[in-house]
Structures are given as C-alpha cells and as structure tokens.
C-alpha cells in the first residue's frame, strides 16, 4: 500500500485556468521525493491538496490507503506534517515555545511529554536557547526553524517541506538535512518542495513540475543524466553538474574530476 497515491488530479482556483493538470503520483513509505519546479508551476498548490486544504476539481488523493474526503480528512491529517513557505504567516504562538507546542496541543499530547519534545526538537533546529522569544524579535531563518521544529515534534509519518529552508544559512541547512536523513532512515516519508537543485540532491527521486503538469518523474541518478530536461523546466543545474559539463571528456585528469563530481551528486 502506497503512502501517497494521487490519481488523475486536476485543480483550479478560479474555474478557468487549470493550475494542476492530470497529476498522477505514487509515493511509497520511506521514500524521499523532491518536487521541483519554476515559480508558479503549482508546487505549493499540490502540497495544499495533499493535506486537504484544497479539494481537487477531479481525481482522488489517498493517504496511507485512505481516500481523502471531508469525513476522513481530520484523521488522515494527523499522518502529515507540512511546513509552509512563508515563516511569518504560520507562527501561531506568542513565543517560540508556544508555537512548537501548538500542533502537539491539538493532538492532545500530555504536557510533560510536550515539554520534553519541545526541548528535544528545539535543540535539533538550534533554537533551544530562544524558547521564550517572541516572533517579532526573530529573523526569517529563525522563524523557519521554529516552524520545522513544530512539525518534527508532531512525529508524523509523512513530512512535507515547502521551500522551508529558503532563509537558512548553509550550515544550519546542512545540519537540518542531516537530521531529516536520520528520519528518512527511520522510515519517514519525506516530500521536499524546492526550486533549489542543491537541496533536491538529498532526495532519492525527483519529480519536476512544469506549468501544472508532471514533466519528469524519475530516480535522481537517472534524471541527472538528462540535464537538458531541467533547462526545459527552467531550473538551474546543481553547481557540480555545471562544472562537470565544462570539463573535457577525453583528458584523463579532467575525467577523474568528472567522475568524482558525479559520485558527489548521485551519492548525497
């Protein structure tokens, strides 16, 4: 049974223009999928459909084998955590501690357990010294970390990150990715929405959206061999591949660098 099963989904906000067209996508438990696409290609819309904030115009979405309907929605949602794009508009609490707690409060997690988890996950995102801070005193990157900690603390089977690391500095992003890798190892299904190829390299599988339709869907190593497909979807190539394409294929030394770079992008 697949973790996520999207069948023939179309969607439009206003009725006229189709934002998503004939989306078919199946994600197995424990996969790490990157959803890539240019701005406006429909990535965030797809994410909102997955958590039932929007309803498809046609087609069906099943989570963990259960079809999303108004009746099943509230139960199914407990299996998915999502971090949205704008950190300012998802900060519900009056302080960092309160905000990390919000999701757990709704899940009726006992207070003692909440306090422990807040400490644990705040440490994971490097916010444990700032638990009493009010959101207006935090930077964008700090707010993103709080949002991420709030989702991690809910310990859902599926975690969706919608451009959730855009304001993080490279070091904290690498630390976060390392932690998400351990969750991935534990069997959590990860959906990482991004237009940043470097971030997508952490995934096993890449799904490319273009103008609301699935343009490519393949294992990372396979898709990276077709760099022209990324250019067609108006995506930047990872730095390592850009360097690689500038190197000669015949020169022995440069070939070794090429191989190394390939190792680097495909093994992350």
């Amino acid at each position: 049974m697949s973790m996520i099963n999207i069948q023939d989904v179309t969607f439009s906000y206003t009725g006229k223009r189709l934002i998503l067209k004939d989306i078919n996508l199946t994600v197995e438990q424990g996969e790490w999928v990157a959803i890539l696409g240019h701005n406006g290609s429909g990535k965030s819309t797809l994410a909102k459909l997955l958590v039932g904030l929007l309803e498809p115009k046609s087609g069906t979405i099943a989570i963990d084998g259960v079809l999303l309907t108004p009746d099943t929605l509230y139960e199914e949602r407990k299996k998915i955590g999502i971090v949205f794009q704008n950190p300012d508009n998802q900060f519900v609490g009056v302080s960092v501690r309160d905000d990390i707690a919000f999701g757990m409060e709704n899940l009726n997690v006992p207070r003692e357990e909440m306090l422990e988890k807040i400490q644990f996950y705040a440490e994971k995102v490097g916010m444990s010294d700032l638990l009493e801070k009010e959101p207006s005193t935090l930077s964008g990157g700090q707010k993103q970390r709080v949002a991420i900690a709030g989702i991690l603390a809910m310990q859902t089977k599926i975690m969706i990150f919608d451009e959730a690391t855009s304001m993080l500095d490279p070091t904290s992003r690498n630390e976060l990715m390392a932690y998400i890798s351990t969750l991935h190892d534990e069997g959590i299904t990860i959906i990482m929405i991004t237009h940043d190829m470097e971030e997508a390299l952490y995934a096993d599988r890449l799904v490319v959206l273009k103008e609301g339709a699935i343009f490519e869907d393949d294992a990372k190593a396979t898709l990276l061999r077709k760099p022209e497909r990324f250019r067609e979807a108006r995506l930047d190539l990872p730095m390592a591949l850009k360097i690689q394409s500038g190197l000669s294929k015949t020169d022995e030394k440069e070939k070794r660098v090429r191989d190394f770079l390939w190792e680097f992008v495909s093994a992350k």
Binding site: L53, Y74, R77, G81, F84, N106, G150
Partner: peptide, 27 residues
Amino acid sequence: FKRSEELADAMESRNFVPGKKRTRIHE
C-alpha cells in the same frame, strides 16, 4: 487578508479544529 488565509491554513494543517479539546503547554 492573505496573511489570515495562510495562518488559517497553517493552523488547520497542524490539526487545529475550533472548539475541540486540546492539551495546553501553559499550566
């Protein structure tokens, strides 16, 4: 308006249901 829309989305996706019983971090 945009903000309140996104905030409502964030709350709902974090399993908030108005009027439903929730535990509290502040005691």
